[in-house]
């Protein structure tokens, strides 16, 4: 392509639009289902099971961060939303809103990263759309992805299946993404090699489901609001039950702990992009934990607590000192304190 930046004409549907699609999107997303220049992707019949459909928009700043970029995030986020619903993710769509003046190289890097992540996750990006808006009307690049997957027959997950005695598992250290971004974004005076945990979890989740068929009762990816928010949403949806977690059992990287101590933040509320929480029947907990730990994305998996019949509607954390405190629902965005 001759132009090195995105111009309004790239979104106008003419020759330049076609050229952008050919050189960037079709080149990277190449797959049998891709319909770059027709109105819809026409896909083969799906395997039996219930259809899962999800959509999410990605506006992260900066576009590139340690451990990932907006493209990788846009694929992982949607793949993970499908996977925690019990679905095998199959196809994704991708919608791009580009700010006029965006370097073409930036877009190419993001699209290449999406393609690579989709390959790793075993999903196909089968349709895409591009709009260009005037400079200032968007911040460089926004992406929306939607995804479809199939939930195998017989698999049900959700609040109705949560039971007192269920074990709560997480597939590794929490807060990595939130802290990595915060440190990177603020150009903090202290250095760290912390990276986002951004990763597609469908393989790990399939392994967990296979390890104890029917015994996984609920899963969620702990994205915005972190681990504590997922657990609070669970007790809101299953108000007759409570959740009790052990502070010492929660896996934390030293850099996340240190960064949170420094900023006065709680890592249990920091975002993750490659962590899921599993509620598993108590007797199956060790089998699922072993399956998680055997997967590369679950090396640090841990059992962090249990679903309880008491303190209904609350998430309670046991401190190492023998005391308890409530982990509340976050009221607003976490703010570093004055002193």
């Amino acid at each position: 392509m001759h132009n090195t930046t995105i111009l309004m004409a790239h979104g106008a549907g003419g020759r330049m639009s076609r050229e952008l699609i050919r050189a960037v999107f079709a080149a990277h997303f190449a797959n049998p289902g891709l319909a770059p220049l027709s109105d819809a992707a026409v896909l083969p019949a799906l395997p039996p099971g219930a259809l899962a459909l999800t959509t999410d928009s990605y506006v992260v700043q900066p576009l590139f961060f340690p451990g990932g970029d907006i493209g990788k995030l846009a694929v992982c986020g949607t793949v993970n939303d499908l996977a925690v619903s019990g679905a095998t993710p199959l196809y994704l769509s991708a919608g791009f809103i580009l700010e006029e003046g965006l370097p073409l190289e930036t877009l190419t890097c993001v699209v290449a990263s999406m393609a690579e992540t989709a390959r790793a996750a075993g999903v196909q990006i089968v349709t895409d759309d591009t709009k260009v808006v005037e400079r200032g009307a968007a911040d460089q690049l926004f992406i929306n992805t939607a995804g479809v997957g199939v939930v195998p027959p017989g698999l049900t997950l959700g609040a109705a299946r949560l039971c007192a005695g269920d074990a709560l598992l997480v597939n590794g250290t929490v807060g990595d993404h939130g802290l990595a971004l915060m440190l990177h974004r603020q150009e903090m005076a202290f250095q760290s090699d912390l990276e986002s945990d951004c990763a597609p979890l469908n393989g790990l989740i399939a392994a967990a489901l296979d390890a104890a068929p029917g015994q996984v009762h609920w899963m969620r990816d702990a994205t915005r609001g972190g681990l504590a928010t997922v657990l609070n949403e669970w007790v809101l949806d299953a108000p007759a039950l409570g959740i009790e977690i052990e502070e010492e059992a929660i896996p934390l990287r030293p850099a996340v702990r240190a960064g949170c101590e420094f900023l006065g933040l709680d890592p249990l509320y920091a975002a993750n992009e490659g962590k899921a929480v599993f509620a598993v029947a108590g007797e199956a907990a060790s089998a699922v934990l072993a399956a998680l730990r055997a997967h590369p994305l679950g090396e640090n998996a841990a059992m962090i607590g249990r679903v309880a019949a008491d303190h209904a509607g609350r998430v309670v954390l046991r401190t190492p000192y023998g005391s308890r405190r409530v982990l509340p629902m976050l009221a607003s965005e976490p703010m570093p304190r004055i002193c």
């Binding site: 401190t319 000192y321 023998g322 005391s323 308890r324 405190r325």
Partner: peptide, 23 residues
Amino acid sequence: YRFGLRELLDGAVELISGPGCPV
């Protein structure tokens, strides 16, 4: 509160919060 000290000391020590929050 974060470390649950009020619960540990309940009945022995009463902690009264002072004016030391700049906000």
